[in-house]
Every structure is written in structure tokens, then in C-alpha cells.
């Protein structure tokens, strides 16, 4: 649904831009394409790696690793799986809900969801291009640590 809003925004933006200045609009589209093409090689690589990972790691495997009985090890496992995989949100949340139904714990699920969103091990090469090596590594490590803390906090709060 929200994607349509974005499309509408982009469409409206393009139209206004075009009416104001054709040349600038053309340049904007050129820049849009260039930014996209700039990340495309790495993006395709990431896609194919995720394809592999998801083919090997089935939801059953994941759920056996991070059940509510799994404790701290389960939280760490969940955080690691979340850091490495890159599942789109609309797949991840139903998966998380299904895992909860199948006996995964809230803390483990929080660690999984949080690292899934904040930590991206396979996109590190892409991130490094923007933030540089040091900042990229620090950001990812800090996000990982935060996710573990958040998992424990959720255990207390929920």
C-alpha cells in the first residue's frame, strides 16, 4: 500500500518538476538511474546470496534454533541470523509471528527482528562506500549490541 503512496509522490514530484524545468527533470532522472546503477552490481550479489541462504535455512531450522527455551544462546543465534539475512519486512513480520506461534520466545524474536533491520553483514560493502570502513563497522557492531540489549528489555517489558 505504502509503495503506491511513494509512487504517487514520485509521480507528482516528477510532474511538478517537469512543469517547472524540463532540463532539471531530465537531469534528476539521469541521476536516479546513475545512483541505481551504482549499487546494482552489489545489490544483485546480495540478492543471490540471500537466495542461497534462504534455500538452506528453512523456517523450521530457524525456529528450532530460537525457541523460547533457547535462552541467551537462542538470543545470540537469533541476532546472528538476523544480522546475516536480509529478509524484506513484509516477509519477516509474518515469519516472526509464525515463529512466535511455534514456540519462539519474545526475546529471541526481538533480537531477530532488530538485527534484521539494523545490521546488514552482507550489505557492508555497499555501506562502506558511503560511510567508510570504520564507521560502517562501528555502526553495525553498535546496532548488534543494541539489539541484544533491546531483546532483554523486551523480555522485561512485555
Amino acid at each position: 500500500m505504502f509503495t503506491y503512496v511513494l509512487y504517487a509522490l514520485a509521480g507528482a514530484g516528477l510532474m511538478i518538476s517537469f512543469m517547472k524545468d524540463k532540463k532539471k527533470t531530465k537531469m534528476a532522472l539521469k541521476k536516479a538511474w546513475k545512483s541505481f546503477e551504482n549499487i546494482l552490481p552489489q545489490l544483485l550479489t546480495v540478492m543471490i546470496i540471500i537466495g542461497f541462504a534462504l534455500a538452506v535455512l528453512s523456517p523450521e531450522t530457524i525456529s528450532s534454533l530460537i525457541g523460547s527455551e533457547s535462552g541467551i544462546l537462542g538470543i545470540l543465534a537469533a541476532a546472528l541470523i538476523g544480522s546475516i539475512t536480509l529478509i524484506p519486512g513484509f516477509v519477516a513480520f509474518p515469519l516472526a509471528a509464525a515463529l512466535l506461534d511455534n514456540g519462539a520466545g519474545y526475546m529471541q524474536i526481538t533480537a531477530f527482528v532488530s538485527t534484521l533491520m539494523m545490521v546488514g553483514v552482507i550489505t557492508i560493502p555497499m555501506e562502506t562506500k558511503v560511510l567508510g570502513k570504520k564507521l560502517t563497522l562501528l555502526r553495525n557492531c553498535a546496532a548488534f549490541v543494541f539489539s541484544i540489549i533491546a531483546a532483554f528489555a523486551m523480555g522485561v517489558l512485555i
Binding site: T3, L6, Y7, L9, A10, G11, G13, L14, S17, K24, T25, M27, A28, L29, K30, K31, A32, W33, S35, F36
Partner: peptide, 13 residues
Amino acid sequence: PPIFILLGLLDVW
């Protein structure tokens, strides 16, 4: 596509 189009517009305007 819309993200990059908005990005392009942001860059230009």
C-alpha cells in the same frame, strides 16, 4: 523506482 526518482529530484532541486 520511486525511491530513486525522489532521490534524483532531491539531488537536483
